[in-house]
């Protein structure tokens, strides 16, 4: 026993040394990865680029959440305040009234209010919005394109791989930084 113990001690020492080196290596690699700035900033939130969105409707159906994280936003500064809003009315609406037969939104999430002749204001009742993009499509096709989809950071679960991004036909869903969690169409997130 007495002869063996130095060997065991040495072996133990070497093993410990290797472990510490391994741990140091792991931390070092982690540090390098963390410090390394790729071409992109740290993008860890998902967002829709409204300039790429084609309003296909996949956001409503492909989000892992029952209630999609994508909701309609309205860039009021871009809106034409049209009486005949093609985001609000069916393409061939017979009358410009809020009757269900004329309105595009399936959940009635767009509120139309009279401002002054001939202008109407359209606001989104977000809790009702299911992100189907019907209004967005209408607004892009015939209007100013002031209605657009964004991922609500309150609703989003921040999946490592966004199911909407996988299903998006136009690569419009991408990661953004926490500093710019929204990509508003008229360029003003907060003001």
């Amino acid at each position: 026993m007495a002869e063996k113990s130095p060997t065991i001690n040495r072996r133990k020492f070497v093993a410990d040394g290797l472990r510490v080196a391994g741990a140091a290596g792991l931390f070092g690699a982690a540090g390098l990865l963390t410090m390394r700035r790729g071409g992109e900033p740290i993008n860890n939130l998902w967002q829709i680029d409204p300039n790429k969105c084609v309003a296909c409707g996949n956001c409503a159906t492909h989000c892992v959440l029952d209630k999609s994280a994508a909701v309609c936003k309205h860039a009021f500064r871009m809106c034409g305040y049209c009486n005949l809003c093609t985001g609000y009315f069916e393409p061939e609406a017979a009358e410009l009234t809020t009757g269900a037969e004329n309105v595009l939104c399936p959940t009635g999430a767009i509120v139309r209010t009279f401002v002054e002749d001939p202008y109407y204001e359209y606001t989104i009742d977000e809790p009702k919005c299911i992100g189907c993009a019907k209004c967005v499509k209408g607004c892009i096709a015939f209007g100013n394109g002031s209605l657009y989809l964004q991922i609500d950071q309150d609703r989003c679960m921040h999946c490592n791989e966004c199911a909407i991004a996988v299903a998006c036909p136009s690569e419009a869903v991408r990661r953004v930084t926490a500093e710019t969690p929204y990509l508003p169409k008229d360029g003003d997130p907060e003001s």
Binding site: P50, N51, C53, K73, H74, A75, F76, R77, M78, C79, G80, Y81, C82, V115, E116, Y119, E121, T123, E126, I140, F142, G143, N144, G145, S146, Q150, D152, Q153, D154, R155, P181, Y182, P184, K185, D186, D188, P189, E190, S191
Partner: peptide
């Protein structure tokens, strides 16, 4: 996708709402 087909009106006494974003 942002064609200004209908110029936004200039309201005299109506403030434009701001778009709300959850933090």
């Amino acid at each position: 996708l942002a064609v200004e087909r209908f110029p936004p009106p200039e309201f005299t006494d109506h403030a434009l709402p701001t778009t709300q974003f959850a933090p």
